[in-house]
């Protein structure tokens, strides 16, 4: 069941459809295409300021804004729920700036933006899943410098991560990471689907759908469709 709300809207006179200007949308779509071409690689893009705070889903909102069209039907989830405060606020933003239909039913949605949970229903190839990812860099807490982490990815130097996981096992008997659990995409790039809980990670594997993980200031990275294995 989809819902259509007639709004006064902030689009039209003062703001473009889906807030961002078309040039910016194109720039983000180019980053997305590059991300799809290099699974797991973080593609930097120059994020715009959005009318909600950085860290509250602005990257996901930009990705959604870049791909949304008039005929789309949007579902917005936060903490696995359509009704949490931030999901409500972000959904209203798109209702106001695009006038698209919204839904709480996974199968009715053409675009699903989520923070944390991945829907239980299997998605089809016509559906896009946009993840809000606060810190897409899996190595960030091991190495705070972007210059260093970029180098580590380039050289496929993931020793630090292996040591961290090993230390967890040595200390606790198992890996003590419950979310932001690192994944290896196509045997090449380590990626962080944070803050998706670990138990949702397997759902990302071998997806029919296209997933786009983002972070506002930094990057779009994607485990592309039909990723052979993690």
């Amino acid at each position: 069941m989809t819902e259509h709300v007639e709004t006064q809207g902030i689009s039209g006179e003062h703001y473009n459809f889906a807030y961002l200007d078309e040039q910016t949308k194109r720039m983000i779509r180019r980053a997305i295409l590059k991300g799809i071409a290099i699974p797991g690689y973080q593609v930097p893009f120059a994020a715009r300021e959005m009318p909600m705070p950085y860290g509250w889903g602005t990257g996901g909102v930009q990705v959604t804004a870049a791909v949304i069209g008039k005929d789309d039907c949007l579902k917005m989830i936060d903490q696995g729920s359509d009704d949490t405060t931030n999901a409500v606020a972000l959904r209203n933003f798109f209702v106001e700036t695009t006038g698209v239909d919204t839904t709480t039913k996974t199968k009715d949605a053409s675009i699903i933006q989520t923070r944390h949970r991945i829907p239980e229903d299997t998605l089809t190839k016509d559906q896009v899943l946009v993840y809000q990812v606060p810190i897409p860099e899996p190595l960030r807490f091991l190495e705070p410098r972007e210059t260093e982490t970029r180098k580590m990815h380039a050289l496929e130097e993931y020793g630090l991560m292996h040591v961290k996981l090993y230390e967890d096992i040595a200390k606790f008997g198992h890996i003590a990471t419950a979310y932001a659990y690192p994944v290896m995409v196509q045997d090449r790039y380590v990626m962080d689907p944070s803050p998706t809980p670990k138990f949702d990670n397997p759902k990302m594997d071998q997806m029919e759908r296209s997933s786009c993980l983002e972070q506002a200031a930094k990057s779009a990275s994607m485990p592309s469709r039909h990723t052979p294995r993690w």
């Binding site: 300021e49 705070p53 950085y54 860290g55 509250w56 602005t58 936060d78 903490q79 696995g80 949490t84 405060t85 931030n86 944390h116 949970r117 606060p134 606790f172 003590a176 419950a178 979310y179 803050p195 809980p197 670990k198 138990f199 200031a217």
Partner: peptide
Amino acid sequence: IQATGFVEHLKLPHYVDFQSELELIRKV
């Protein structure tokens, strides 16, 4: 603008992450 957003995003619900942390800490 970035700093305030990211610091203050801690106000957002983190029920799911916290839930998985809870399970982990109970186990440990």
